[in-house]
Design a protein around this nucleic acid. Structure first.
Lengths: 329, 329
DNA sequence: TTGAAAGCGCTAACAT
DNA sequence: ATGTTAGCGCTTTCAA
C-alpha cells in the first residue's frame, strides 16, 4: 500500500542500500544511478518513513520544547525564535505546555526522551531536583532559556536580569523615588530571585533601606494586575515594576481608573518586551528582553550539542536594552 | 546502555511478549506475573522507546499542528485549546509555523506525514490545491480549524462568520452608519471572503449600496493598522472593522492621535477575541470568537477520526457572541 | 497464560 | 560503486 524503500529499489533495479545512499546524499553513487533512483522516487511519490529512519539511525530530527503556556506572548515569542532556527536546521519541534507545574515538566521531559528527540529546550521552566536528575541521567542535550539555572550547570541562554533591574532602580532612586515595588509573575523562581537581588543591590548602593514588602505577590495577567494595584496604592508605591507585560497593563489601567497620572504620581516599568508594551497609552518603559533572540540563540546552542560541535560558552548572556518611555520620568 | 524490553524480560524471567503485554495493559497476564514485571520495570527504570513502538504499531501518539505564527495571540490561543485536549488524550503535538506561505504549509504537511503522526490540524491555513490533493492521498485524518474550507470537504471547526458580520453590520446601518470598512489580515482567504459576503448582505438588506472600496487591504499588526488608518480616514469611514485585534489597536491609536474620538466620530470593531481587546482604552467591541474552544473542539474531532469513532457532523459551527463595548455606539 | 518468531522500514557496517 | 545482511526496540500473530 504505502511505498517503501524496497519498492523503489526493485523499480530502479538497484539494492535498497543504494536507494538509501541517494536519500542521504552519500557521494558514493554513480551519477546516472542517482539520477535513475531519483526519478523512480519521484514517479512512485516515495517519501521515507521518518519513524523507521529514527529507529535505525537514532536520530529523529525532532526537538522537544517544554514551555509554561504557549498562549502567553512572553513564551510564544521565545517559541517563535526557537522554531525558526529549528526549521533552519531541519528540525521539527514538539511543544508541551506545563502551566509552571514541575510534575508536568518532568512528565513532558520523560515523554520526549522516550520519543527519542534529539534535544530538548526548557523555556522559563522551574526544574525541580527530580527533573534535573532525569536530565543528567538521560544523555539528551538540554538547553534552558529565559531563566537562570546556572546552579544546575546546564547550558542556558539569558539576559543579565540582575544588572538590568539594578540599572533601572538606581536611576529611579537617584531621581527621588522611594518605594519601588516589584510584582512577580511566576515566570521562574531563579530568574525572579535575581531580579529581587538587583533591586536590593540598587537600594544598598544608594544607602537606602529595602523593605521586603516591596516585593509583591504574583500577577501574570491583566485582571490580576488591575486588582493588585488596589493593594499597591495603599502601600504608597511610587514605582511599580512588573515581570509580566499583561500585568503592567492591568496596573496601568488600575491607576488611570483612580485618576492617578503616570508618570507623575506613579511610574511603571515592565520586564518583558512583548509587542504589548508598544500598544499601551502611555507606552510603558520596559526592559527590552530580546525574547525572539533568546529562543533563537537557545536553539542554535542546542544544534551545536546535537551535532557534537564544541561549545565555548554554555551559559550565554544576551545584552539587554532599557527602553525609557512615557510611563517613567 | 539503554534499558530495553529484553533486559526487563530477562530480569523478570519472562518473554518480551509478556513484558509488552504488561506495557500495553493486555488483560491476558497472570496478576502475579504482571506484578513481577512491573516491579522489574520500576527497578530498572525502564521506559519504552516510542520510536520502536511507533514503527511496530503504526501509531505515534503524536499529532501535527500547522499554524501561521505561534507568536500571534490569535493562533496561540487556538493552539493552546488544541494542546490541552491533545494532552488529555495522551497525544503530543508537533507545531510548525508557516507565515501563511502555502508552500511551507505543504512542506510541513508532507514532513508530518513522513513522521507518521496520527493526525494533523490546520489552524487558519490557506491550503492550496496541491496540499488538498496531498491530504486526500495520504490517509492521515485532518481537521481544519478557524477557517472555512467547506469546499474542500474536510472536517472543520468554525464559527459562522457570515452571520456574525451581518448581524453587526445590520445594527450599524440601522443606527445611521454609512461607510463600514473592513480591514483584512490574511488570516484565511475563505474566511475573510465570508466576512465580505456578510458585509454585503447587510448592505443589501438595508437597501444601501455597498462599494468595493469598503474592503481595505491587509493589516495584521499594530503598526500597519496605525498606518492604514491614515488612508481610511480620508475615505470618510465612520466604522472600521478589522480582522486582527492588533490592527484594531493600531487603528484606535491612529484615531486618537488625530483627535478623532470613539465612538462618536469613528466606531471600531475587531473580529478576533484575544485578550488584547480587554486591554484597550476604550475597550473595543468585538466578535467574540471562542478561539480556545475552536482549538479544543478541533482536537476532539481529530481524536474521533484517529480512533475510528463515528462522526455525525464533520463540519462543526461553534456559536459566536458579539460583545458590544465602548468603541461602538 | 505464556513464548517464539516474524516483521515494521530504514541505516550502516561489511563485502565485493 | 553497489549489494548483502544484521540490527534498531518494539508489537503482534501464531502455537503451545
Amino acid at each position: 500500500m504505502t511505498v517503501t524503500i524496497y519498492d523503489v529499489a526493485r523499480e530502479a533495479k538497484v539494492s535498497m542500500a543504494t536507494v538509501s545512499r541517494v536519500l542521504n546524499g552519500n557521494p558514493n553513487v554513480k551519477p546516472e544511478t542517482r539520477k535513475k533512483v531519483k526519478e523512480v522516487i519521484k514517479r512512485l511519490n516515495y517519501r521515507p518513513n521518518a519513524v523507521a529512519r529514527g529507529l535505525a539511525s537514532k536520530k529523529t530530527t525532532t526537538v522537544g520544547v517544554i514551555i509554561p503556556d504557549i498562549s502567553n506572548m512572553y513564551y510564544s515569542s521565545l517559541a517563535r525564535g526557537l522554531d525558526d532556527i529549528a526549521e533552519m536546521y531541519n528540525y521539527q519541534t514538539i511543544i508541551t505546555n506545563t502551566d509552571h507545574d514541575p510534575e508536568k515538566e518532568r512528565d513532558s521531559f520523560l515523554n520526549l526522551v522516550s520519543k527519542q528527540v534529539d534535544g530538548i529546550v526548557f523555556l522559563g521552566g522551574t526544574l525541580n531536583e527530580a527533573t534535573i536528575e532525569d536530565i543528567k541521567n538521560s544523555n539528551v542535550p538540554v538547553v534552558i532559556c529565559g531563566t537562570s539555572e546556572k546552579d544546575a550547570d546546564l547550558p542556558s541562554v539569558n539576559i543579565d536580569y540582575f544588572s538590568a533591574i539594578k540599572e533601572v532602580t538606581e536611576r529611579l532612586l537617584e531621581k527621588g523615588s522611594e518605594n519601588v515595588y516589584f510584582v512577580k509573575a511566576n515566570y521562574s523562581r531563579q530568574l525572579e530571585g535575581r531580579i529581587e537581588d538587583g533591586l536590593k543591590a540598587a537600594y544598598d548602593e544608594a544607602g537606602k533601606s529595602f523593605k521586603e514588602e516591596y516585593i509583591e505577590s504574583v500577577a501574570e495577567d491583566y485582571q490580576t494586575g488591575k486588582e493588585l494595584f488596589e493593594q499597591l496604592v495603599d502601600h504608597d508605591a511610587d514605582v511599580i515594576i512588573t515581570m509580566s507585560d499583561e500585568a503592567a497593563v492591568g496596573v496601568l489601567h488600575g491607576a488611570l481608573d483612580r485618576g492617578i497620572s503616570l508618570p507623575n504620581r506613579l511610574q511603571l516599568i515592565s520586564c518583558s518586551n512583548t509587542r504589548l508594551v508598544h500598544m499601551m497609552r502611555p507606552p510603558v518603559t520596559s526592559i527590552a528582553i530580546p525574547l525572539y533572540d533568546i529562543g533563537a540563540v537557545g536553539m542554535r546552542l542546542l544544534t551545536k550539542y546535537m551535532n557534537d560541535e564544541t561549545v565555548d560558552e554554555p551559559n550565554v548572556i544576551l545584552p539587554y536594552r532599557i527602553e525609557y518611555r512615557l510611563s517613567t520620568k
